[in-house]
Design a binder for these strands. Structure first.
Lengths: 247, 247
DNA sequence: CGTTTGCTTGATACGTATCAAAGTTGGTGG
DNA sequence: CCACCAACTTTGATACGTATCAAGCAAACG
């Protein structure tokens, strides 16, 4: 596996960059900054793009930068010594990657992999530290974001500890719907517009491919979900919600 | 179960309070403050004590304050709708409780229960918000603390997803040793000086009492641990370490 | 003391992992 | 356009870990 070099096509680069910055400006982390503060911050931002399946960074790398997703979706994967991986979360536009490693300076505890063509804005570790000292509003939103993540993580712990696979998968599908849901292109239901293999689902829910498949087949037979060109369509979110909460 | 009222015995209260404040001053959250800054902060701090088994707050309560442990140990328990609980973590002196709820304003996502007689310092939600705005050094340490917690939580997720009960219990014992370990009073080994039932261990590792007991009995028969007046003594931490990492 | 609370052990059932093999899909190059 | 390959999906048989249920025991407690 090779780290894919950021792809900087030079034509129209400036225009794209301005557009990107404008989008980042509206991100929770920065939206409460005054114009003046923003002018201070913006000089430290850099844009990068990655193709599908590219690694933004590897577990174990020293932390170099904070990533803010602009376009695309990214999964965070924790590799284990015995080969089995855990997909800790899937993130989308506006969300942060790499904060953990940035703040405590320890190596990235997971790898970040683009699930589709992805564009990000980065801030180097050094610059971010400086920005935080100067702008309490940014600190504050960092706190809120870490907090949100901690809450989600705690919920995941509970789910792994007490729920059965069926419930965990239902839960995962609903979370993915929130993140990447669009109305299904034909018929009713909501499509999860993210390229995910059954392996990914299994790794998100702490189970094996085979079990994930068996559970999803059962869901399909019961009319809860449908497959469409490699994507999953949720036909009955209410019912899934019930299953997620243990019937 | 009733929320136990803070116990304010009035004699020597002032002396104890000063002592408490001095201890809190050295806590990661505040130790980098200048004397002047500290003088600003200290006026917002309040002391409380709780007897063993008392609830500091309940899951679902609206968040009123941040707690900083001064003395004693506290477990954070997530109650589930089907009666099974999950002990998310055990915290000791210097550590924070309730940050999550404080920052996003949503109800406490777990209950905090004193494992022994415990003294804490609290800051009301409102005051903490003000302090954070005024003192970037405090913000920064809040970020570091949230970050540490997130890392631990992520590790717990991995462990629940891929490790077997035996490994999870070994891991839990080692973590508890770091938190509440003292040299064993007789013979060698390190004693976990915290009152924990097998039920607690089970809830920390996402299993049932019976299974927790079976695993720990096996550990005992293999000379890895020993029981001493309701406490657990680790006789062979190296071996436990190996088991935690999957032999 | 009896009663509660926590600990322990055994028998059994169930969920899920594991191993094996075959079917399906999408992409690639001839 | 088709054949082929690799990656992914699916199904089945079996084994294993852990939950569940039941019961007895010990220590702490009012």
């Amino acid at each position: 596996m090779k780290k894919t070099a950021p792809n900087r096509s030079s034509s129209r680069l400036e225009k794209m960059k301005r557009e990107m910055m404008k989008a980042v400006r509206t991100t929770p982390l920065f939206h409460s900054l005054s114009d003046e503060e923003w002018r201070d911050v913006v000089q430290y931002l850099h844009g990068h793009t990655y193709p599908e399946d590219a690694y933004l960074f590897f577990q174990g790398d020293p932390p170099d930068a904070l990533y803010i997703i602009w376009k695309g979706r990214v999964k965070l994967v924790r590799h284990t010594s015995q080969g089995r991986d855990v997909v800790v979360t899937v993130l989308g536009p506006g969300q942060l990657i790499g904060e953990m490693a940035i703040f405590d300076g320890r190596p990235y505890s997971m790898s970040a992999i683009a699930l589709e063509d992805t564009a990000v804005v980065t801030i180097s570790r050094h610059d971010l530290m400086a920005i935080i000292q100067r702008h309490p509003a940014v600190s504050f939103h960092v706190i809120l974001e870490l907090n949100r993540r901690l809450r989600l993580c705690t919920e995941l712990v509970r789910s792994l500890a007490v729920d059965r696979v069926e419930q965990r998968i239902a839960r995962a599908l609903l979370r993915l719907m929130d993140l990447g849901g669009t109305p299904a292109p034909e018929g009713e239901g909501i499509m999860i517009d993210i390229h995910l293999t059954r392996q990914d689902i299994a790794e998100m829910t702490g189970t094996t491919v085979e079990t994930a498949i068996r559970v999803m087949s059962r869901f399909r037979k019961e009319g809860l979900i449908r497959n469409y060109k490699g994507r999953t369509i949720l036909l009955d979110p209410e019912r899934l919600e019930k299953i997620a909460r243990g019937k």
